[in-house]
Design a protein around this nucleic acid. Structure first.
Length: 260
DNA sequence: ATGGCGACGCAACGTCGA
């Protein structure tokens, strides 16, 4: 089973890339973030014609998440709102159960945080507190749990192209990293880091400064696995190829292969 | 040099992202 997470920065603009990617990569489940569109404008038909069904939580202009799954898999929406998330409510979580494999997939778009000491930074930390509570409750179900998405947190300095330049900034700050560690402490494993020790592997590169060409990036997109899923992990990687296309998203897909 | 790029809403440029 192939599972991927991709911040597409507008599904309207990136639809051709996403459809091509499904065709080439044969992923079974693709979590999308930053749809930047409302549910009624989501391109259900195009995905359906490609053999995929979609559970989505859209929003006008900002945010928006979806789980795109091969049609033959039965999927049940568990939640599309994060209880206890701070106001204003934003579309940043979709929680889907695949009953056949007893696998629960949480697809997230964690708030960016703007700048340390901003209101948005506090929003991010509060949102993450709500997430920790939610995940704690989800664990009581006894299902396999996979948490993926754009976390907007680079867990370690080796996930940052220039740690000195980024020191203390949003996405790498100590409080954000503590949030990420607290989530791992609940019993989750960063799939990529579990299989790869090396730094310098990133999932996001700024559009400016020719950052991608110079590999000036951050690893902020992650797929976390519950302990019960870890024995099934075969591979974890970042696929940089879509970032090389014309008009790319600033993020690349991150993937896992599970022997489920 | 704190902007560079890109999407959105909307019809000029401000907001947001990371």
């Amino acid at each position: 089973m192939l599972i991927a997470s991709w911040n597409v920065n507008s599904i309207a603009v990136r639809l051709p890339h996403v459809l091509n990617y499904l065709k080439e990569s044969k992923v079974d489940h693709l979590g999308l973030q930053e749809l930047k569109t409302t549910d009624d404008k989501f391109p259900y038909t195009e995905f359906s014609e490609a053999g995929y069904s979609c559970l989505i939580k859209g929003e006008k202009t900002y945010n928006g998440v979806a789980l795109v799954s091969q049609k033959e898999t039965s999927c049940r929406l568990v939640a599309d709102v994060l209880p206890g998330a701070p106001e204003p409510l934003q579309s940043r979580l979709i929680d889907v159960l695949l009953p056949q494999s007893k696998l629960r997939i949480l697809n997230l778009y964690v708030p960016n945080g703007s700048q340390v000491d901003s209101d948005k930074y506090e929003y991010k930390l509060k949102w993450f507190d709500a997430l920790l509570s939610y995940v704690g409750k989800a664990q009581e179900s006894g299902e396999h749990l996979l948490i993926m998405g754009d976390f907007n947190i680079a867990p370690e300095d080796k996930d940052v192209h220039d740690p000195a330049q980024w020191e203390g900034q949003v996405l790498v700050s100590e409080r954000e990293r503590q949030c990420f560690q607290r989530l791992l402490s609940l019993g989750f494993t960063d799939s990529f880091r579990h299989l790869h020790e090396e730094g310098g592997v990133f999932s996001w590169w700024d559009y400016r400064q020719m950052a991608f060409r110079r590999n000036m990036g951050l690893r902020i997109d992650h797929i976390l696995l519950s302990q019960s899923l870890l024995p099934f992990l075969k591979q974890a990687w970042v696929d940089k190829s879509p970032r090389k296309l014309e008009k790319p998203s600033d993020h690349a897909p991150v993937l896992v292969e599970l022997d489920l």
